[in-house]
């Protein structure tokens, strides 16, 4: 019926408000992001374990010098394909401050699976002081806290260029066309062969940027795989249920003249 169609149009339109908002927010003054065909994107996408593990290596050897990752515990590493022994070994390499002990003193001990990844600075002000006044944000949620998500992280990390296209960046800031405002306080953190990948993958800037972006996406949304697989089952169930209920509705309403 005409009215039904109208209602559907209206429903679509109201939803549309939300959708337009999303796209409106994505528009910024920075350069259009490079788009990557991530292993984890799409309705069934899963994290590429090898890539995420490489990304963890980049994080540990590069990013962790300044950035914290405070919502991730060593036990979580088992979710990205490390065995319990590997995760324990990774944790044990770190000294964790614990205490106070019976004498009231703080002490350090080897890290355990239950420990969160320790921050490089004791507090936010120390972090600022060591980085020229700019606070290196915690990276646990960075992939969800930036418009563009992992594409933004990848574009930013691989997007530093010598040619600033006439942009004047002040002292202590560096040109990057993907950063809103084009000048940011973080110098290009990675360079070709800065690290040596455990699995032998050539450590190019592009590769490292991709890997660490994938890792940070996992860090921000560790339940994504569980979410998508549960969602698939729920949708199938709801569609069958809708079909059955629609048929049942027709059957019952057929009793009316």
């Amino acid at each position: 019926m005409m009215i039904n169609r109208s209602i559907k149009v209206l429903a679509g339109a109201v939803l549309g408000i939300g959708l337009m908002t999303g796209s409106a927010l994505a528009a910024g003054d920075a350069k259009e992001l490079k788009s990557v065909d991530w292993h984890h994107s799409g309705p069934f996408g899963t994290y590429d374990r090898a890539q995420v593990q490489r990304g963890f290596q980049v994080f540990t050897e590069v990013c962790a010098a300044c950035h914290s990752l405070k919502y991730i515990a060593y036990r979580n590493l088992m979710e990205i394909g490390f065995s319990e022994e590997q995760a324990k070994a990774i944790a044990a390499e770190k000294d964790i401050e614990d205490g106070p002990n019976a004498d009231g003193d703080m002490f350090t001990r080897a890290g355990r699976l239950s420990d969160k990844i320790p921050s490089p600075f004791p507090n936010d002000n120390a972090a600022k002081a060591s980085n020229g006044g700019a606070y290196p944000p915690d990276l646990s949620l960075i992939a969800k806290a930036r418009v563009g998500g992992e594409d933004y992280l990848y574009s930013l990390l691989s997007g530093y260029s010598e040619d600033s296209h006439g942009h004047e960046c002040g002292t202590g800031t560096y040109y990057n066309p993907y950063f809103p405002g084009s000048c940011l306080a973080m110098p290009s953190p990675i360079a070709d062969d800065l690290i040596e990948y455990v699995d032998g993958t050539p450590a190019t800037v592009d590769q490292m940027s991709k890997d660490v972006s994938a890792f940070l996406t996992w860090a921000a949304e560790p339940k994504m795989e569980e979410r998508k697989s549960m969602g698939f089952k729920v949708i199938i169930f709801l569609l069958i249920m809708s079909g059955l209920l629609y048929a049942a509705k027709r059957r019952i309403w057929a009793r009316l003249h």
Binding site: L238, I240, M241, L244, L245, A247, A248, R251, I252, R255
Partner: peptide, 18 residues
């Protein structure tokens, strides 16, 4: 009004399981 049939029972069972 109270006739039950297989289709309606199946739909009801789905609602219950859900």
């Amino acid at each position: 009004g109270e006739r039950r049939d297989f289709l309606v029972i199946t739909a009801g069972a789905f609602v219950g399981v859900g």
